[in-house]
């Protein structure tokens, strides 16, 4: 294609081709800390004009690549960066087989991870962004990759996709405009702005970690904490996994192993600060905080 770049995020390698220059330039800027070696990729993504005319007149980006959805809606060119992100997500969701994929965010401390899952808008992405600015290692805001053989989590620390109110909240938290991508207004999901993870979390993205705690956060509700048993966690996570069925027995073993190995809680919280504080507290109350206590002793 006319314009192209290669990106590596965690264990996944992408080749992105585009009919236009702008989305590739924006990707290169947003992913400037990530490896861009031209290796054989896991996935090819194409941002292509919906027709020859649409390359120039009111240009529309069709999302295409190795894996596509038949009814994917094209985006206007000024949302090309979003189109690229959506296309990369789609490849992972439909094509990745090396790990069990959970639609979740994750941060870690002392080599143990908190996995936060929930429907879009539940706040898992913002919560992970907030914790990542407060001393936690950022592992990913979209997908958690569980290794079926070892039970470890492979980090997938893409730029965090902040939406609507979360944009202002994180701009308030981080006093460095260079960490943010361009503001994308009026997208199908409202206003979106990407936040680049701290460089150190990208440099360490090949280092796996153990899962320590599973949370089901819900933003915008009065504070509440409820323990969740293995069966409910399991059923909820089958819904939150994009490749559970495709992995067959490996997926079942990975997921049952995961829910047995970590305590799980549903948490409701009214503000970001309250959510972050709840995660900290649950972390130290559950056995997963053992590392911290050992360090403090």
């Amino acid at each position: 294609m006319r314009h192209a770049c290669f990106l590596t995020v965690g264990p996944a390698r992408f080749r992105i081709g585009s009919d236009w220059r702008a989305p590739i330039d924006q990707l290169r800027a947003l992913y400037s800390d990530y490896p861009m070696d031209e290796v054989v990729p896991d996935f090819t993504v194409r941002l292509q004009a919906t027709s020859a005319l649409r390359r120039f007149v009111r240009p529309q980006v069709a999302i295409a690549g190795d894996f596509t959805l038949p009814d994917a809606v094209p985006l206007p060119l000024h949302h090309g960066l979003l189109a690229a992100e959506m296309a990369m997500n789609l490849q992972m969701a439909l094509g990745w087989r090396r790990h069990l994929l959970l639609h979740a965010s994750a941060v870690s401390r002392q080599g143990r991870a908190v996995v936060m899952t929930g429907v879009s808008g539940a706040g898992k992405s913002t919560l992970s962004a907030l914790l990542a600015e407060r001393g936690w290692r950022f592992l990913g805001d979209e997908f958690v990759l569980l290794d079926p053989e070892t039970g470890n989590i492979a980090p997938f620390p893409r730029p965090i996709s902040l939406k609507n109110a979360a944009v202002a909240a994180m701009e308030h938290e981080i006093d460095d405009d260079s960490r943010f991508g361009p503001v994308l207004r009026d997208t199908p999901k409202g206003t979106i702005r990407h936040l680049r993870p701290r460089t150190e979390w990208i440099e360490q993205m090949a280092r796996e970690t153990r899962p320590g705690l599973l949370l089901f956060p819900r933003f915008g509700f009065p504070r509440a904490v409820r323990r969740m048993d293995e069966a409910e966690s399991f059923v909820r996570l089958t819904q939150a996994s994009t490749n559970y069925v495709a992995l067959g027995e490996r997926g079942f073993d990975a997921l049952t192993g995961f829910v047995r190995s970590v305590p799980a809680c549903a948490i409701d919280y009214a503000t970001g600060d309250e959510g972050a504080e709840l995660v900290e507290r649950l972390w130290s109350e559950t056995g997963a905080g053992a590392g911290d206590r050992a360090a403090a002793a």
Binding site: V40, W96, R97, A246, L247, G248
Partner: peptide, 21 residues
């Protein structure tokens, strides 16, 4: 097969098994 291509093909073989089943 060189490693990066080999791992893609190994994934595809796993998908083949699932697809067949």
């Amino acid at each position: 097969v060189p490693y990066p291509a080999a791992r893609v093909l190994a994934d595809v073989r796993l998908s083949n098994q699932t697809g067949l089943r």
